[in-house]
Design a protein around this nucleic acid. Structure first.
Lengths: 312, 312
DNA sequence: CATACAACG
DNA sequence: CGTTCTATG
């Protein structure tokens, strides 16, 4: 697992040319297209906690489904508008040396951490970009069997741990459900141990819709990856261990709130989605919670980003 | 090897939609874009033979480098303008059942023949589309070892055989040169045997530049696939067996006449190319030869099409 | 550089 | 449906 942080690098340039093939046009598009539509800060974000204390930390998490494609689709323009203090990305599907200069050279985030799959190139992978330097950054959850796929980065800040995770998908036909169950147990133990030392913020694609309210089609998906009783129970046990689902805490009745839509069957246009991406907090952080939002207008992946505001 | 001819089929329709991802735009492009630039019949084509007899058959050969991509790039619009009596395609890289309706339903060519690789999907593959029905169509060259990759279709017409071929590439590092040499021997024997019965027109990607005049960079390519002494000698021996290279016959001094340019290094814009595609004729057809042309303005592949006019 | 495939989601 | 990989050219 790569353990280096990256600072700025020079961008490489590509010359344009004339005999336009499709892929050439694609590249030119990336290079020349002016900007993504301008997004303003969401005026509905609540920027104070229960006691009226002002939010002072903003975090965004996004499963980008291929970082290179997402960059070409101007995902970074959205990030610049959102301007979080920490940006966590999942499913980067990109070796560290293949990262686009657009992101490795981003001056807004001088502290950047990357984890990729050791065996399979272009599989899994997570990243964390920070405006301020963490006290310490670690990779994985301390168990050989889980730490070869670039799924977890943990950053220690003065008053909390920030963990970003891309939880293993149980797979078509649930071929990897048994593995997922062992993951859920070990990951919960990892988080509980952190929680004994400092409060924890966990964010990322947890690859489970917890309750029926968390996906459009609960009935039809009980035997599908992401909504099996085993995966839902795993999430319930995580909460029982002393954590809260920040979005559901604040919006307990909110229906049709999803963070993932399959590319198939025009699911996003019909909002046939799943809530798979979360900010999960140690109970001790509940007083610091200001808002937990789903940015479902941001395009560039089959997941949308989510943003958390804390007053710490 | 598929041995069925195909007639018309219904086109399938795709609904448009709004949340535009890159691949969606690609599909819409294919559906909605008006037309490729209009091409007129080449006024420099010579449409009579030496004796002034009028050409009465027109054939086009094109290595399309992936038929599905080529269709999306409006290759068929060019074909409709060119309007040959027979169209031969190489490197279709497409299973018969995956053929786009745009080509399977083309009414101009009621008689269509397809050959694909048996083992590797999306590899090799040739096709022949005819306005008039051949007396007989066969696939391969009658040798097990050569006939599993969908490289040859032979159509028998009243006064000649038409053979279209995609000759095996000798490969990077010449890994398949030995195989290519056995192919060259067996293919020559196949053509010679046909020639004993009726005159032969051979067209396609023969994967060799015969002489130094046939590629931009002869010096640098003597050890590269397509210009090794062995491959060039194979072509020489084919000619020695009673065949002629129709283009070179008519234009013996013509330099910078190529039919293939690698996509790399902007080779086509600089005309750094190779002449790999040929109409090779039985000597007996020499009196029928009117013209043999390279259509190097036609885009859609890393090869361009070539066209033959005969007065038979 | 570009077209195919497979694996994965 | 879309991103990645690999093989092939």
């Amino acid at each position: 697992m790569p353990k280096r942080a990256k600072k700025n690098e020079e961008a490489s340039v590509e010359a344009g040319n004339d005999n336009k093939t499709e892929p050439q046009k694609k590249r030119e598009k990336r290079a020349k297209e002016p900007e993504a539509p301008i997004l303003y800060k969401d005026p509905t974000d609540k920027l104070t906690n229960k006691d009226g204390r002002a939010a002072n930390i903003k975090m965004t998490s996004w499963n980008v489904d291929g970082l290179r494609a997402w960059v070409k689709k101007n995902g970074l323009d959205w990030v610049r508008q959102e301007d979080p203090d920490v940006l966590c990305l999942q499913e980067t599907k990109c070796a560290e040396k293949a990262l686009p200069a657009d992101i490795t050279s981003m001056p807004e985030y001088p502290y950047k951490y990357w984890a990729g799959s050791e065996d399979k190139e272009g599989y899994s992978g997570v990243a964390m970009l920070c405006k301020t330097e963490p006290l310490k950054v670690t990779y994985g959850i301390g168990k050989e069997e889980h730490d070869k796929e670039g799924r977890v980065i943990t950053a220690e800040f003065p008053s909390y741990f920030l963990v970003t995770a891309y939880v293993p998908n149980a797979g078509r036909g649930l071929v990897r459900l048994e593995y997922r169950k062992t993951w859920d147990v070990d990951f919960r133990e990892y988080l509980s141990n952190l929680d004994k030392r400092k409060s924890v913020v966990l964010c990322g694609d947890l690859n489970v819709a917890h309750q029926e309210i968390d996906l459009k089609n609960p009935k039809g998906n009980r035997k599908n990856a992401g909504f099996t009783p085993e995966e839902r129970e795993g999430f319930s046990q995580l909460l029982a261990a002393g954590f809260i689902d920040s979005f559901r805490e604040l919006y307990p009745e909110q229906t049709n709130a999803y963070t993932f839509w399959t590319y198939m069957m025009n699911a996003r246009a019909k909002n046939v989605g799943w809530r798979l991406d979360y900010f999960v907090l140690s109970i001790a952080l509940l007083p610091s919670l200001c808002d937990s939002k789903i940015r479902n207008t941001a395009m560039g992946s089959d997941h949308c980003p989510i943003t958390l505001h804390l007053a710490i």
